[in-house]
Design a protein around this nucleic acid. Structure first.
Lengths: 330, 330
DNA sequence: ATGAAAGCGCTAACAC
DNA sequence: GTGTTAGCGCTTTCAT
């Protein structure tokens, strides 16, 4: 306070009402001199808005990093900051984080859940704070989500592999409780194989937790059989790279002896030799799209519940063309 | 309010003062029924504490991801949440973020700066909010930092390379404005070479921005000369992998024709073939150490200004033993 | 156009 | 032990 009333100061800072020039100058001068900055917490108490977006992630890796990049980019552009919670693959911690963020009065939440339970839905619908889910589909509950189609790309991969002359095709999938990247990709494979009248040898199928190490182990098991597949589709690039390393360590050449295809197109996919044939999914876009959707929801604009991300089959060097019509176009 | 006074409720919630059992029960019952949760913002207004830690990062990649993991882990264990700011390699945005976090009344800040300027120091010392810096050294200003020694490991690499029989050694370093990972690693190389009376051919030295792509380009330039080095040390694994791919694309074999060593030991280093010889630095530990230091600072406990991280030379398969005494111990 | 005053949801000092 | 009250730093009526 330097000469005028608090309300005038507030008006100057927020430009909320006209203020006489000379009083305005006086206030601005004092603000400059004292280096005054309004207290965001007190503002939040009144406005009921903190300009904070809660981001709940099951783990923090390079994929999350891209996701965060996308989210942070549009959040930042709109005056929001993001606050992070790592749930370490524990669904209970997701619930906690949801509650915590509500207490902290965030303006919106982006949730990357490993498995949307009834309790998740309950909690989200009880709180009136906007939520958008990424990497899972929640169409039944009118909660907006952003995700790739996990089913179709895999069917395209199968067809591409067939066109390259492969018939003995295996798969290393992710955890099946994960409905999106786990189950859907797996079903895409099984069902497309069925549709094409290709039998899938159960020994050619392995499960992993999406890590390279697990991919290595799963591949090891597959290659132990006397009969081995000519191609194996992996539910992620990380799995694929583990599988590739295993095959190479066992003396197989990629793609001459075994073809491998990944999913996600992480940077690694182009860094590894042979470069990985994979499905491109842009996680940064996933993040920005989620944040844009959340913004609409916060501003009470109409939002799409279902938001599919683009994807693209990227043909590189890890699939051998055995006998085909064409190899680079599908 | 259901029968009792607000203060009793507050006391029950915070256990701040003894409360009669029957009144306590009553309050707890209502809390349960109405699903009441105290408003964290209002609490923050009084307590001057938000349980928020501001984390300022120049970019969000897999290294940041590990760092965040470390920070989030100990923050979470101590009841703090982290709020993120991505400064996209722009020093001005670092200043902004510092200011913003102060406005938001965070309890502490972890700053990964690309270049600590006078204005940074100024701003940090003006605000009385605790800051710890990661990945840079600020010993002159009594601001605590956590960082690896970037100089010594490189000297060890040079000596290791010499012991393996290499003399024509090159380097692809990072941006020199980055005093830590950029300049220190570069000086470590130059000065150790000097000490060992090995001349360094300027044509064997390249600069990059730590990306694989830049590493590729820098290596390309080096390999264009008629005379090429037998080993090149890279300021990061990402650079090393780019360099390796370039050499291989040009028909050189690693490590038979050219040896390469990296720095950081990111996951990629073991996923790539040949596996990368590199310096192990645990960024997750860097994060947790930074957060622990910050915690001490917040609680007014004495803190160490200088916090060096452990490192370890990891001998893998990307260095050829030309003529040596011993190859795996250094 | 400006100031006084109420109040956001909570905690803590004070009185009973 | 419990309730009443002031006040955290701000915005926003409501008078003037």
């Amino acid at each position: 306070m330097a000469g005028v009333s608090v309300s005038s100061v507030s008006r100057v800072i927020n430009n909320s009402k006209p203020v006489n020039d000379h009083i305005k100058e006086k206030v601005e001068k004092v603000i400059r001199e004292t280096n005054f900055r309004p207290n965001a917490v007190a503002r939040g108490l009144i406005s009921k808005s903190t300009n904070l977006i809660g981001v709940i992630l099951p783990q923090i890796n390079y994929i999350s990093a891209e996701l965060i990049n996308g989210i942070e980019g549009v959040a930042n552009k709109n005056g929001y900051n993001i606050i992070l919670s790592n749930t370490r693959l524990n669904p209970d911690l997701e619930l906690n984080a949801l509650q915590l963020f509500k207490d902290k009065q965030v303006d919106g939440i982006i949730l990357s859940s490993i498995d949307m339970s009834e309790r998740h839905i309950q909690l989200i619908q009880d709180n009136k704070i906007p939520v958008v889910v990424v990497g899972q589909k929640t169409t039944d509950y009118a909660i907006p989500w952003v995700d790739v189609d996990n089913y179709r790309p895999i069917t395209e991969i199968v067809r591409y592999l067939m066109r390259c002359g492969h018939e003995k095709i295996g798969m290393i999938h992710g955890p099946l409780i994960d409905k999106s990247a786990g189950d859907s990709r797996y079903r895409g494979f099984i069902e497309e194989m069925e549709r094409k009248n290709l039998s899938v040898n159960p020994k050619f199928v392995g499960e992993s937790n999406f890590s390279s190490k697990d991919g290595y182990l799963a591949m090891e098991k597959i290659l132990k059989c006397e009969d081995i597949p000519t191609a194996v589709v992996c539910a992620s690039d990380t799995i694929a790279i583990g599988a590739k390393n295993c095959a190479e360590d066992l003396g197989y050449r990629i793609p001459e002896d075994i073809s491998i295809v990944g999913f996600d197109d992480i940077e690694l996919a182009t860094l590894v030799r042979p470069k990985l044939t994979t499905v491109q999914v842009c996680f940064e876009t996933m993040g920005s799209k989620a944040m844009e959707t959340l913004l609409q929801s916060i501003e009470f604009k109409p939002v799409n519940i279902e938001n599919y991300l683009d994807y693209r089959l990227i043909i590189r060097d890890s699939v051998k063309v055995v006998a085909d019509d064409l190899g680079t176009k599908i």
